[in-house]
Design a protein around this nucleic acid. Structure first.
Lengths: 144, 144
DNA sequence: AGCAGTTGCATAGCAAGCTATCCAATGATA
DNA sequence: TATCATTGGATAGCTTGCTATGCAACTGCT
């Protein structure tokens, strides 16, 4: 029993993330959104007109991943890619009215999932959980 | 700022799981393993000859996901599917000598990733982290 | 001005998730 | 016993990740 999966942080992290994604997907699918699209919208709702590179930095995903997600969002009429006025290589990503209108219902749906997830934790435990998770992320980011 | 991603458990969970997977992948790729294959091997190292359904239960993934992972593992000569003696529908999954031999190096590699991830936490914080994570998983599993 | 290096994106190809279906084998029951 | 429901797997199709490449546009230097 050298490796008990219920004691492996990596195993648990994977399991937890899949459950979060599943819950989020259920909640936002009626809005016509997929999880990665929602994450991208979070950044654009805060600041519209970002470039693809800026989105990559804010969400910490690979550039190729973001390019594909943006292509699907464009297909679904959530964003438009416009030529960047100052740099011929890049484009600025702009929300459509449809995407702007989704902000309220989508964030509510996502908050509901977080609420369920943390439902059995006290207020203090929630803070501890978020803090520890952030520290684990930081440790992993330094090495990988 | 209704939704700060550094305060969203779901966002952090996704980010953390991706970093874990990235670290694990780096560490076990030289062994010819991919992350999901490793997770499956964890179950089979503990008990060889499980059916696909049993693996699905132990890893809590969908049946279709497991079927595809097993197909890749068969392709990579890590497992063999054998006809089940008592149930014509199912098969029992058996490790090859190659997969048996990978147990030591692969678990070491995975433990190293967990070590890095939890490197900045005290012993007590690690226990708290694992406990809280398990409770979040339980809460999510009940609803989704 | 011209070349070299850097940077921003796109694309190909693969792994691992998921949902939805379908088929064959079992089981239960009228 | 014959039919119907359940169960174990396979397959199709999609999203989201990743790495590896390639190309075009920009920057810096000489």
């Amino acid at each position: 029993m050298a490796f008990d999966k219920t004691r492996s942080a990596g195993f648990l992290a994977n399991h937890m993330a899949r459950l979060f994604a599943k819950g989020l997907q259920q909640n936002i699918k009626p809005l016509g959104l997929a999880p990665a699209q929602f994450m991208t919208l979070l950044a654009l709702w805060e600041e519209d007109g970002l470039t693809q590179r800026q989105l990559v930095e804010r969400l910490d995903v690979e550039q190729a991943t973001m390019a594909n997600t943006l292509t699907r969002m464009e297909r679904d009429r959530l964003i438009e890619r416009r030529a960047h006025p100052e740099d011929g290589r890049s484009q600025s990503i702009h929300l459509t009215p449809k995407a702007v209108a989704l902000r309220e219902p989508a964030t509510s749906a996502a908050l509901a999932v977080n609420g369920v997830a943390l439902g059995d934790l006290s207020e203090e435990e929630r803070l501890v959980f978020l803090d520890l998770t952030r520290r684990v992320i930081d440790a992993l980011k330094q090495r990988y």
